[in-house]
Amino acid sequence: MSTTPTPNLFGDTLMSDPHGAYAQLRETGPVHRTTTPDGAPVWLVTRYEDVRAALADPRLSLNKANAHTTGRYQSSMPPELDAHLLNMDPPDHTRLRRLVSKAFTARRIEGLRQRVQARTEELLDAFTRPPVDLMAALANPLPMAVICELLGVPQNARHDFRAWTNTLLAPAPDAAAESRTAMREMHRFLVGTITAKRSHPTDDLLSAMIEARDEHDSLTEPELLAMAFLILFAGYDNAVNLIGNAVLALLLHPHHLDAVLDGRTPVRDVEEAMRWNTPFTLGVRRFALEDLTIGDVTIPAGGRVWVSLLSANRDGTHFEAPDSFDPSRTPAHLGFGHGIHYCLGAPLARLEAETAITSLLDRLPTLRLSVPADELRWVPSFHKRALQELPVTW
């Protein structure tokens, strides 16, 4: 067993400087045992090859029934929203993903391109004079508008939809009551929307998921509800932070920004930004189905495992000069996961980020930070790498 110090995932050091903290963890061992604030044990995997292998390892289950520990950090979802892809293993996962994929097609995502572009232009039109907080003005509202369009959320309900989502994604300290209220309201809204679309389908993802069938199989009502909720969260938050982190990466590297502006370097599907500052620090928690060994560490059956996507994407044994931001490289990053649980919404996140960044730089080629980089504030989270604000001028 590793005798290296136990990392505190919930402490200031790892949250304030995750790249530095994870670099030290990679040096000292492939797997580290730590605990959540409520005392539950967790095994943290940090190196690229181990993370990639763990993401595809059938001995690591996403089904919570295989956990030997409990605690509030085990899952953020209430029971009625549990029937989704990130809580399932094959064969249930295989069936559900096959059905959902029928609705979440490349054609449907590509069909959103003009609407993503139009919404981006509307948001940029609202930029009057600097400075502007790019997170509030572009990175947050664009994915929310797109995901509402994709799911078929009526225009008159989108304000409430966004308020509920913001409450659930960034709850204030000691705001459990507000989160529960938002969850109940979101649940009630989704149930009503699915019922309405079952009677009067439209050209949107929810209607397509209701119609998705394979022989005599279809999505159950709990599966529809849970998948709509998952698509909302996975489709919204990841895209928000990918846009923010990608723009920041370019602003911190003016020579690369110049190369993008004059056409020498394409945006390259924002892959390097996803690698360099991965929005989701940790992949979905997993549970060992049997005792398994990674490096010199044995994880017991039922043990909860977290894999650090952010750490893997800065591993110097896999990436040359991993701390350098280089949009010309085409890295095999793990920002969208790997294996059967690879992010179904990755094409949509790429489309939103590419459109937002390209249009922003076309409009404002002199864009730059309006505050020193060391004054930027990050969301205090061990789970994601997200800016609170991104003040810019031009």
Rank of each mutant, 00 (worst) to 15 (best):
His32Pro: 08
Ala118Ser: 14
Pro91Ile: 07
Ala103Ser: 09
Arg98Asp: 05
Leu99Ser: 10
His32Ile: 06
His93Gln: 10
Ser75His: 03
Thr128Ile: 04
Tyr73Val: 02
Leu112Trp: 04
Thr36Pro: 15
Arg119Met: 10
Ala65Tyr: 02
Glu80Thr: 01
Thr128Leu: 05
Ala137Leu: 01
Gly29Tyr: 02
Ala118Thr: 15
Leu25Arg: 08
Ala67Ser: 15
Asn87Ser: 10
Arg119Cys: 00
Ala136Asn: 10
Val31Asn: 11
Gly20Tyr: 06
Gln24Cys: 07
Pro30Glu: 13
Glu110Asn: 14
Leu62Glu: 11
Ala136Cys: 00
Gln117Leu: 13
Gly20Val: 08
Thr28Gly: 07
Val132Arg: 14
Pro143Arg: 11
His68Ser: 14
Leu96Gly: 07
Trp43Ser: 08
Glu49Pro: 01
Ala65Asn: 12
Arg52Thr: 02
Tyr73Ala: 01
Pro58Ile: 12
Met88Ala: 15
Ala65Pro: 00
Leu55Gln: 12
Arg33Tyr: 02
Asp133Gln: 08
Asp125Tyr: 02
Arg107Gly: 07
Gln117Lys: 08
Met77Tyr: 14
Asn66Trp: 05
Asn66Phe: 07
Gln24Tyr: 01
Arg97Asn: 07
Ala106Arg: 15
Asn63Ile: 01
Ser76Ala: 14
Leu142Trp: 04
Gln74Pro: 00
Thr46His: 10
Arg59Cys: 01
Asp89Asn: 11
Gln114Lys: 10
Asn140Gln: 12
Pro30Arg: 13
Leu99Trp: 09
Thr28Gln: 14
Leu85Glu: 06
Arg108Met: 13
Tyr73Glu: 12
Glu27Lys: 13
Phe127Glu: 09
Pro131Asn: 09
Val100Ser: 12
Met77Pro: 00
Arg98His: 12
Gly20Ile: 05
Tyr22Trp: 12
Val31Ile: 06
Glu27Asp: 14
Gly20Gln: 05
Ala137Ser: 13
Thr70Ser: 15
Leu62Ile: 00
Arg129His: 11
Pro37Cys: 08
Thr46Gly: 09
Tyr73Pro: 08
Thr35Met: 02
Met135Phe: 06
Thr35Tyr: 06
Leu112Lys: 09
Thr28Glu: 08
Thr46Phe: 00
Ala103Gly: 15
Ala67Gln: 07
Arg33Met: 05
Pro41Trp: 00
Glu110Ile: 01
Thr69Arg: 10
Ala118Gln: 13
Arg72Lys: 10
Arg59Pro: 00
Glu27Ser: 15
Arg119Phe: 04
Thr35Val: 11
Leu25Ile: 11
His84Ile: 02
Asp50Lys: 09
Asp50Pro: 12
Ala106His: 11
Arg33Glu: 10
Tyr48Gly: 12
Ala106Phe: 09
Arg113Ser: 14
Arg119Ala: 04
Ala118Cys: 07
Pro78Thr: 03
Arg115His: 09
Pro58Met: 05
Thr35Leu: 02
Leu96Ala: 13
Arg47Ile: 00
Thr34Cys: 15
Thr35Gly: 00
Tyr73Ile: 01
Thr120Gly: 10
Val100Cys: 14
Pro130Ser: 07
Leu44His: 13
Ser61Trp: 01
Arg52Met: 05
Thr35Ala: 13
Lys64Cys: 03
Leu55Pro: 15
Thr34His: 10
Met135His: 05
Met135Lys: 08
